[in-house]
């Protein structure tokens, strides 16, 4: 009736599963992963200083803004976005955002990958080819 070995084996397997993040990061992890990668700005973006809205707002709410853009453009046919500071923009991901942030890999993907977010924008909308 000695099932102690079985139980200990089960327990070890359970702990391996529970401790997955620890050993996974140790073996396969990216070093320095506790510091988030910085999104890199293009020259053009640096010059502009601000995005269509304040940086802090954009950081937290860019997906909400894009969501609003797509609805207003497609459903209401309004294609002029007037920003907080009075700037006027074409509410278009491909044509406005990607004009400045033409470096999708360094700008968008870094944070998205870090947070494991896979926006499906790119399934339809195009982005400028990366120039290596």
């Amino acid at each position: 009736m000695n099932d102690k070995n079985k139980i200990i084996t089960g327990l070890v397997i359970f702990f391996l599963v529970v401790l997955f993040p620890f050993w996974f990061n140790l073996i396969f992890g990216t070093p320095g992963a506790s510091t988030a990668p910085e999104a890199e700005l293009t020259e053009k973006a640096k010059e502009a200083e601000n995005c269509v809205e304040e940086t802090q707002y954009m950081r937290a709410e860019h997906m909400q803004l894009l969501d609003q853009w797509r609805d207003t453009v497609v459903r209401d046919g309004k294609r002029l976005y007037m920003a907080e500071d009075g700037g006027k923009y074409d509410p278009s991901l491909s044509n406005t955002c990607m004009d400045c942030h033409s470096n999708k890999v360094e700008f968008c993907d870094r944070c998205h990958n870090y947070a494991s977010v896979a926006p499906y924008c790119w399934d339809c909308h195009t982005y400028p080819e990366e120039t290596e």
């Binding site: 620890f22 990061n25 992890g29 506790s34 510091t35 988030a36 944070c111 947070a115």
Partner: peptide
């Protein structure tokens, strides 16, 4: 809305024992 990137920094710190 919380800043997910900051959170991951914290949690990755925990998971890498730093």
């Amino acid at each position: 809305k919380v800043d997910v990137i900051r959170i991951k920094e914290l949690t990755m710190g925990l998971a890498t024992l730093q």
